[in-house]
Design a protein around this nucleic acid. Structure first.
Lengths: 227, 227
DNA sequence: TTGAATGAAAAAATCGATTTTGTTGAGATG
DNA sequence: CATCTCAACAAAATCGATTTTTTCATTCAA
C-alpha cells in the first residue's frame, strides 16, 4: 500500500524469494522437511535458476539449511532455539529502542503514530491476517527506525522473521491478542513522552508475552521426520 | 588445520562462495565496484550457475549488493557505517562475553587457551598473513563460544567479517598490533579468573582500538566510481 | 541371516544457449 | 545547440539439457 505503485518489476528470482520467504514464515512447510526442488519449480511456476538463487539466499538468511549435495531443508524447530531467538530479540530491540528514543525526531514520532494507526485499522478486519501481520511488522520497525544503526535493524528484522516462524504456529488467542495490542498503544505513548525506562520494560514484557504464547505451542515438538 | 582433512568435497558453488567471500573481505575489489559476472566466471574458472548462487548468498550475507536488473556491486565503504559496525560489534561481543563467562566450563577454558596458543604461534610468521587472520578470528570466536546463543554468535561473526573489510584497508602497524596482542593475552587471563567486569572493559577497548585504526584509513574515502 | 556390492532411478548441481533487459551513441528533431 | 529516438550492442537473467551424486532396492557371498 505504501509501496510505490509500479516502481520496477522485480526479476523472477526476487519474486520467488519473497514468496518462499513468506511461505516459510507462515509455516506452509513442515519443520525439518526436505524441499524437492522440481516440486517447488512446478508449484511456483518458475525456472530452476531463479528458484535455486532464491533458495541460496534463503539459506544465507537462515530460513533454510543447505546440505552439501543433497539439497535444501526447512530448519527444525526447537524450544531451545525459540528461547534463544526471543531472548536475543528482547535484548536487541531494547537496545535499539533506547537509541531510537534518544535520536528520534518529530518525523519519527509521526511515522510511529501512522504505523500504529494502520495497525489498529488492520485489526478491524480479522479475516485479512496477512494485512495485520505486515502492519504489525511495520509498526515495530517504525518504533525502532530512528535508532541510527543499519545493522542492528537488520539483525532485528532477521530475528523477527525467525520468531514469527514459531509464533505463527500458535492458534489465534483473542485475549492475548488484546493484551498485546494494548501494549502497542502504550508503547506509542511512551515513545512520545520519551520514557525510555518504562518503554524498555514494556517492550521486554511484550516480547516475553509473545514468547510464552509461542512456547506453549512448541512444547510437543514434531519428530525429526524427513521427506 | 583443525578442519577435517577430507570430509567431503564441497560443491562448486560453496567453494566459489568461500573464495569470493575472502576476496571481498581482503579488499581485492574496490568499494562500489560493479562486478562483471562473465569476468568473474573466467577469473575463478567456474560456471555461471555456481557463480550466481554464490553471489546471491553473498548478497544475502551483506558482502554484496544486488541491483534489480543490473547485477552485483561491492558495497560502498563509509565512515558512518564503520562506526555503526564497530559500535554494534562492541555491544554484541560484550553481551556474549558476559554470557560466555557465566556459562563457560573447563572445556571452554581449554579451547580459549588452545586458540590463544595458535594465535601466538601464527604471530611468529608475519609472512603468513592469512594464517594469522584465521587464528585471530578463531580466538575471538572461542572466547565467546560458550555464550549459548547460536544467533548472537552468528551476528557477531557477520559483523566481524564486515569490520575486517575496513580493518584490512589499514597498513600493518607493529605498535598497534603489539598492543592488541597483549590484550588477547589479558583477555585469556580474565576469562580464566571469570572477571566479567574487567573483561568487558578490555574487550570494549580492544574493539575501540581496532576501530580507531581502521577509521584512520577511511578518512579519505574513495569516490563513487563504477566499472 | 546378515552385510557388502551393484546398478538402475531419482535428485541435485552444473553447463551452454537463449531470452530479456539495460546501455550507448549516431542521427533526427525541435 | 540541446534533447529525443531507436538501433546495435553488452550484460544480466533465465531456460532446457547434461553431468554428477545420492538413494534405494536387489543380488550375491560369507
Amino acid at each position: 500500500m505504501t509501496a510505490s505503485p509500479s516502481t520496477s518489476r522485480d526479476m523472477a528470482s526476487s519474486r520467488i524469494f519473497e514468496t518462499l520467504k513468506q511461505d516459510l514464515i507462515r509455516g506452509r512447510f513442515a519443520a525439518g522437511e526436505k524441499l524437492a526442488i522440481s516440486a517447488l519449480k512446478d508449484h511456483y511456476r518458475v525456472g530452476l535458476s531463479p528458484l535455486r538463487e532464491a533458495l541460496n539466499r534463503l539459506a544465507a538468511y537462515g530460513l533454510l539449511e543447505q546440505v552439501n549435495q543433497r539439497g535444501f531443508r526447512v530448519p527444525a524447530m526447537e524450544l531451545e532455539e525459540l528461547d534463544d531467538i526471543a531472548g536475543l530479540r528482547a535484548q536487541l530491540e531494547c537496545m535499539a529502542l533506547t537509541q531510537a528514543f534518544q535520536a528520534g525526531d518529530s518525523e519519527w514520532e509521526s511515522q510511529v503514530l501512522a504505523a500504529h494507526h494502520r495497525l489498529r485499522r488492520a485489526d478491524e478486519h480479522p479475516e485479512q491476517v496477512e494485512e495485520w501481520e505486515q502492519a504489525h511488522l511495520r509498526f515495530h520497525r517504525a518504533l525502532l527506525a530512528s535508532c541510527g544503526s543499519h545493522w542492528l535493524l537488520r539483525f532485528i528484522k532477521q530475528l523477527h522473521d525467525q520468531f514469527d516462524r514459531y509464533r505463527r504456529l500458535a492458534p489465534p488467542n483473542p485475549a492475548v491478542r488484546k493484551a498485546l495490542d494494548r501494549q502497542h498503544g502504550e508503547l506509542v505513548e511512551l515513545a512520545l513522552s520519551r520514557d525510555i525506562r518504562a518503554a524498555r520494560a514494556l517492550l521486554d514484557d511484550h516480547i516475553r508475552l509473545s514468547h510464552s504464547v509461542a512456547r506453549g505451542c512448541c512444547e510437543l515438538p514434531a519428530s525429526d521426520d524427513d521427506t
